[in-house]
Computed example of a mutant assay.
Amino acid sequence: MTALEIKEYIQKNGKIPYVLESIGCSNIVYHDNKDYYSCSNAVGGDCNNPAAINIRNNKYLNYRNYTRGVEYDDGKDLISLVQYNKNIDFANAMKYLHKLLGLKNLYKVKEEKKKPDDSWFVFSRFVVKRRKCVVNDFDPMSEDILNDFVPYIHIDLFREGIIKRTIKKFGLGYSYRWRRTIFPIRYWLDGTLMGYNARSSIENCSEFGISKYFITPGMRKEINIYGLWENYKDIQKAGYIVIFEAEKSVLKRDSRMDPTGGAIEGHVLSDEQVRIILGIGVEEVIIAMDNDVPIEEVWNMCEKFYGLRKVSYIRDKWKLLGPKDSPADAPNKIYNFLFKWRIPYDESKHREYLKSLKKNS
């Protein structure tokens, strides 16, 4: 389940008191007139105040802690309270709630029977070997598919700077049969294999009617951040995350000893991706889209974090990048310069964005 789905499950099934009790809160009372719960803190602080915490009885489960100076209104919720009381990060809080509520037992994994290869459909085996399963709200793929690829990448990507250490870390591979470099895509929370993005190594492949990229059919990239599973600890240590457009940008920065990137695999930031980023506990979110993405789209992404986190964006005002380049395509010296002079998305930028909306309406 996603963060929003597990909160909706807790609220709809009346599990708020159960969760609060499990993390040490007591004096739990429901206030029908304003539709919220109050309770005291867990042992170790002001646990005698029966109304220290107020938590709303809605699908967002926002709360406020009046005695510990920790306010969790905008973007903070029951999951954050679990993190606070159990002293764990967001990923482990999600695992804790799944286990506490017995959600693992709701799903059964069943292997599909093997089907013969379909020669006219490229990578048909990607679909054949997928398992029927709704854990995490998507269909995981079998790890056995990894055996079909050699642990290397095409020479062109190697020349672009993706090194052996990064190849191993992200599990990259190459298919000689399909002449494609394989980018495994793992779910940010537990590393489950969601699918692949496969990049053709055939020069001018579009002229032969061959797509440059082949992504696993039906894969829900909007509920994931590519690279977050691999870079999670480094991102938390740094205190910020750099949001790129494509997987290759994350890989290039990792190869330059910078494991702070994640990719949304496009330039549309979904609500679930916003929730994931808010939940990992970073102080700053840095938007680093490709050079051809309009500034209004970049501002729209920044707007989703404005007031919740420190947010900034990288923009090439000095024309140091190519027309369609990612900041990650630049050498370290140029990237570090662009990173240093990233633009804060402050109140003035917020007003400028609102003006652009009125102008275009």
Rank of each mutant, 00 (worst) to 15 (best):
M1D: 11
A3W: 13
K7D: 10
Q11L: 10
K15C: 06
Y18Q: 07
Y18E: 12
S22D: 08
S22Y: 02
G24I: 01
C25D: 00
C25Q: 00
H31N: 04
D35S: 08
Y36T: 02
Y37M: 00
Y37I: 00
N41W: 06
D46L: 02
C47P: 12
P50E: 00
I53F: 04
N54I: 02
R56Y: 14
K59P: 15
Y63H: 07
T67I: 04
T67F: 07
V70L: 13
D74I: 11
D77C: 01
L81P: 07
Q83Y: 09
K86Y: 06
N87Q: 13
I88D: 12
D89Y: 00
D89L: 08
K95R: 14
H98I: 11
G102M: 06
G102W: 06
N105R: 12
K108M: 13
V109R: 10
V109E: 13
W120F: 15
V122D: 14
F123A: 12
V127W: 13
R131P: 07
K132H: 13
N136W: 07
D137H: 12
P140E: 11
S142C: 10
S142L: 04
L146W: 12
Y152V: 14
H154E: 06
H154R: 09
I155R: 15
I155V: 14
D156E: 09
I162E: 01
Y176A: 11
Y176R: 09
R177W: 12
W188S: 06
L189N: 07
G191H: 01
G191L: 03
T192Q: 11
Y196V: 05
S200Q: 03
C205S: 03
I210D: 07
I215H: 15
M219Y: 08
R220L: 15
E222H: 15
Y226I: 05
G227H: 02
G227N: 06
L228N: 09
E230V: 02
Y232S: 04
K237A: 12
A238W: 05
E247T: 03
K248N: 11
R253P: 15
D254G: 10
R256L: 03
D258A: 14
G261A: 02
G261C: 09
G262H: 03
V268M: 14
D271L: 12
Q273H: 04
V274G: 07
R275M: 13
I277M: 10
L278V: 06
L278M: 06
L278A: 07
I280F: 10
I280V: 09
G281W: 01
V282H: 03
I287M: 03
A288C: 05
A288R: 03
D290Y: 04
D290K: 10
I295R: 11
E297Q: 15
W299G: 08
M301V: 10
K304N: 02
V311Y: 00
I314E: 04
K324W: 10
D325N: 11
P327W: 00
A328Q: 04
I334E: 02
N336D: 14
W341P: 10
I343R: 01
E347Q: 08
S348C: 08
K349Y: 04
Y353V: 02
K358V: 15
K359I: 14
K359W: 12
N360W: 12
